[in-house]
Amino acid sequence: MNQTILTVIDNVPAARDVFKMRLSGDTSAITRPGQFVNVLIDGLYLRRPISVCDWDEDTLTLVYKVVGEGTEKMAAMTPGTKLDILMGLGNGFDVEKAGDNPVLIGGGVGIPPIYGLAKRLIAAGKTVTVAMGFASAADVLLKDELEALGCTVKIATVDGTAGEKGFVTGLLNGEYSYSYACGPIPMLKAVFDTLTCGGEYSFEERMGCGFGACMGCSCKTKYGNKRICKDGPVLVKEEIIW
């Protein structure tokens, strides 16, 4: 973890109400896909936690949905804007557990951390299937980018305007070595009930600090009380209490 100033390179629409922001700066604190950063935004008090979509040595990519005041202000940021960011927060996904053919499941704005994970799994020689669920075709996110990595990408939309009509669980008809999921809780629960293989699930909660100090985002697990920001956001299947 560290506190760093990053500079916005570009900030462009990526889907309906979704933006992709690239920033330059020191990303050395990020160690795993599925971690997040906590962004200080002018005029707001609490930092805004945003999942890491991708990173390299000096570039951070965030893909975020405009859902409130903080992300509205982010969407209006122009290249050159400097941001005070706490980097490398949370535990992230464990790529070592993937096995040969993992499945990655994402719902809506839960897709961005799945991208960073897929990239590292492909680099490790895995056969990666990505199953993504959206409300509608206008919300489809990172499909081309995931295909370009070499993933098999399956899509479901609630209204049937892209991919199969229905929910992401309808796409999970293969045999997989392991699973990684990020999305709304009802989706995570449905995936949990559908898949028999082991897996890791990334959760979301309103946070105070983002680094384990305030107990604002606590949850109960079979392994005791955990903080989504510090002990999560990724929980393993065995420990989750729904």
Binding site: Y45, E205, R206
Partner: peptide
């Protein structure tokens, strides 16, 4: 354990 979440607001 404390209160249910959400526990925090801006």
């Amino acid at each position: 354990f404390g209160n249910p979440t959400p526990r925090i607001a801006e």
